[in-house]
Design a protein around this nucleic acid. Structure first.
Lengths: 99, 99
DNA sequence: TATTAATATAGCCATATTCGAATATAAGAA
DNA sequence: TTCTTATATTCGAATATGGCTATATTAATA
């Protein structure tokens, strides 16, 4: 891995390395959701949710489409799901005290 | 994944979400290396290398042992290798223009 | 057009990260 | 002890990030 690729990979990881953003990715694992649905699922405020969604959209992690007054977000970069599963397993193991 | 686990997972990801740190993890994939060897492999300055190594050690990603005047680092949290492979594949695909 | 629902953006403040230069420490050799 | 090699730490400055409140935008409907 050369330095340029490392920089790109770090960008993608940084885009996901945040509790709320991880939970958002998890919530979108099974398909698109509107901002309101994501807000409710996470119990976060509107502005915060929208900010994190836009951040991930800017970094190419998510994509969105508008339908009337609602905006639906979905996962654009499927690799983040794989990353999520890595850390998910890790958490699982950590929770059981064997990592 | 509850919020507490998400916070922990984000910590681990943040510990790796940096170009130099990714390259360090990659360099340690096949076993321990001294600080000097890592410096040379990455072409980074001594202080920077040491700082990033210590950061990852603090977060539980790496571990170290001293042998005389040299200090050897190794991967402590094997999950970071899995994460690395995820982003590595991603980079690979991106480099070939299909992601 | 005025109103309402849904989402986005701007500005602010506190805190965190990053990098670099300089200095400090640890251990072995002379 | 003094010197040298290898590594760690400290500190400062620049930049980035996170979360908050308030406000703006967008689109539908009355």
């Amino acid at each position: 891995m050369d330095k340029e690729l490392a920089m790109h990979a770090a960008e993608v990881l940084k885009a996901v390395a945040h509790p709320i953003r991880l939970l958002i990715v998890e919530a979108l694992q099974d398909g698109e959701r509107s901002v309101g649905q994501i807000m409710d699922a996470l119990g976060e405020k509107q502005a915060i949710t929208s900010q994190q969604l836009n951040l991930m959209k800017d970094k190419g992690v998510l994509a969105s489409r508008r339908e009337g007054t609602k905006v639906y977000y979905r996962i654009q970069n499927p690799n983040v799901i794989r990353v999520l599963n890595c850390v998910y397993d890790h958490c699982d193991a950590a929770a059981k005290g064997r990592s």
